[in-house]
């Protein structure tokens, strides 16, 4: 198999990701793309605690991820690519648009300047415009916190 889910979630690895998505999708590889976590062994240890031992977790920088996307796409595992912010996912899409094609907005929470689009998605108008541009470049973007809830297309988040 290959990368089966590309998710933006500012809580990174947590129950909704591991249990909510991981189990029904049969995920056995989680790739967390985050420069800060990639440099922190104790943070990695904390995140590993949230994941069953049979699931492999890799912590990589954006640079490492862009270099290794092809390998993850063909390594026989069912992979989940996870980023904590939109910029990182956009960079991965730019590096490999055919692999980072469908993008799941799973959790982007309130910060000053952001407006609620869904209870689990807050975006500034600028962020929404950048996502629209990303979709115009070929990505398919929707918001969905769990597989049991219906996805909401990007065009309906305005």
């Amino acid at each position: 198999m290959s990368i089966v889910l590309c998710r933006v979630d500012d809580r990174l690895i947590h129950g909704q990701v591991v249990v909510g998505w991981g189990r029904p999708m049969g995920i056995n590889l989680i790739i967390l793309v985050d420069d800060q976590v990639a440099a922190s062994e104790w943070e990695q240890e904390l995140y590993r605690m949230a994941v069953a031992p049979e699931i492999e977790v890799r912590f990589v920088t954006v640079a490492q991820a862009t270099a290794e996307l092809g390998e993850w796409q063909s390594n026989g595992k069912r992979g989940l690519v996870l980023t904590g912010d939109l910029e990182t996912m956009a960079a991965l899409h730019a590096a490999s648009p055919e692999i980072i094609h469908r993008i799941n907005l799973g959790g982007i929470h309130h910060r000053p300047g952001r407006r609620e689009r869904l209870p689990f998605i807050y975006l500034t108008d600028q962020e929404l415009h950048r996502l629209t541009a990303l979709e115009e470049s070929g990505a398919v973007i929707s918001a969905q916190d769990l597989p049991t809830t219906p996805p909401v297309a990007l065009r309906n988040l305005g």
Binding site: H14, Y47, M49
Partner: peptide
């Protein structure tokens, strides 16, 4: 509540 996840991560990150 849970030994892993967002709650424990937030707590341990700042109070470890």
């Amino acid at each position: 509540d849970l030994a892993s996840g967002s709650c424990s991560f937030a707590v341990l990150k700042r109070l470890r």
